[in-house]
Design a protein around this nucleic acid. Structure first.
Lengths: 210, 210
DNA sequence: GTCTATATATTGATAGAC
DNA sequence: GTCTATCAATATATAGAC
């Protein structure tokens, strides 16, 4: 791949991300994207086939990046995981951090994931399913090792965790305009993680009786 | 208002709701709506001014309906609320029930609320703010009456509650295709409410020491 | 309130020169 | 890889008859 190729592709992607996130996919035209990217509109068809093609690349790069992040954050770690609850919170922190770094794309993906299409079903069955299985595997191990409770409904836990992680970053405007806090700020993140940790530690961890 | 007026308006609204919820607002054209509603396309401009006008009515009717439901569900009740946690869960149940009854509109609203526009900001500052204040007032009273803890961050509680209520009904597809359960089913609702109740009761209620 | 007819703009996508 | 030029389809919106 030559540099010129990437430069145009990247410019188109960046412009598309900004516009999709503000106006929505359906309300954004190829011409608008080309204009914002300072690129000839014909190049979009050339590089991405069509508008849907841009969204596809945006989604794929996002999730590939997320799972790469998972791997790299596991690198400097000792083989044996000791505390599975810590591991859970580390994972949550990684996802939230990634979502903050990619605010616009996060918003686009969550929004477009609620629309019916082939692309959406594929993303669901690969990436979201994979994300779920990462958490599910963690809980399974935690239970095996006797660190986690197994009385609560496991599926509910996972749905609940995804809700908690996704929602504030899918709709940061609600958080900002109704709660007057910025979900992307360091303070908020720390406080939110802290909150979730408190809530969850009691219900997920196996209790030592008093 | 005459009957004929309403019939057309209702048909247009119904068709728009179905299309918006499946394809998204931006990807749906006035013509499509008119066709699905078996109505002349010019009538949309006549009744709603433009496409945005339909969305506006959809949103307003939804939230007006929700708050009317709040009022009516409070009717047959004794003046003095005794258990504020029960009251909280009753409120949660009401919202979730309402969301189930209006699946399509719920999806549309959550999705379009993540897009930037005047309409969205208005809906946020009126309806979502009002929804928040309903929960906030409940917590305040619960604390005053010595039934609720006040150690946890109150704002986080509210964000967390809204996340838990909204997310599964904003994106039921994730729940269905990844978790293989239907968030609209009686069983799910009961189990989910039960789960939330368990999680929250420990952290929100004032504990009687063991 | 509802229709036909139409004006006008914008859409996504491609063919072919460079 | 990038451009110009252009197509056919579709968009929203309105004027005026009924």
């Amino acid at each position: 791949m030559r540099k010129t190729v990437n430069r145009t592709k990247v410019h188109i992607m960046r412009a598309a991300i900004e516009l999709f996130s503000i106006q929505g996919f359906g309300s954004t035209s190829i011409r608008e994207i080309a204009e914002k990217a300072n690129v000839n509109s014909a190049l979009i068809s050339y590089h991405f086939k069509n508008k849907q093609g841009i969204l596809e690349r945006i989604m794929i790069e996002y999730f590939e990046g997320l799972f790469r992040r998972f791997d790299s954050s596991r690198e400097g770690q000792t083989e044996e995981v000791i505390d599975y609850f810590d591991e859970l919170m580390r994972l949550v922190k990684t996802v939230i951090g990634f979502q903050c770094e990619h605010q616009a794309v996060t918003r686009i993906i969550q929004r477009e994931l609620s629309v019916d299409s082939m692309l959406v079903r594929e993303v669901m069955s690969t990436y979201i399913a994979k994300l779920k299985s990462v958490f599910a595997a963690l809980f399974e191990k935690g239970i095996q090792e006797g660190q986690f409770q197994e009385d609560l409904n496991q599926e509910m836990k996972l749905i609940h965790i995804l809700s908690s992680i996704f929602f504030p970053y899918f709709n940061p405007q609600i958080v900002r305009e109704v709660f007057y806090v910025d979900p992307m700020s360091e303070e908020y993140i720390e406080e939110y993680i802290d909150y979730l940790s408190k809530i969850w530690s009691y219900h997920f961890k196996k209790v030592e009786f008093c």
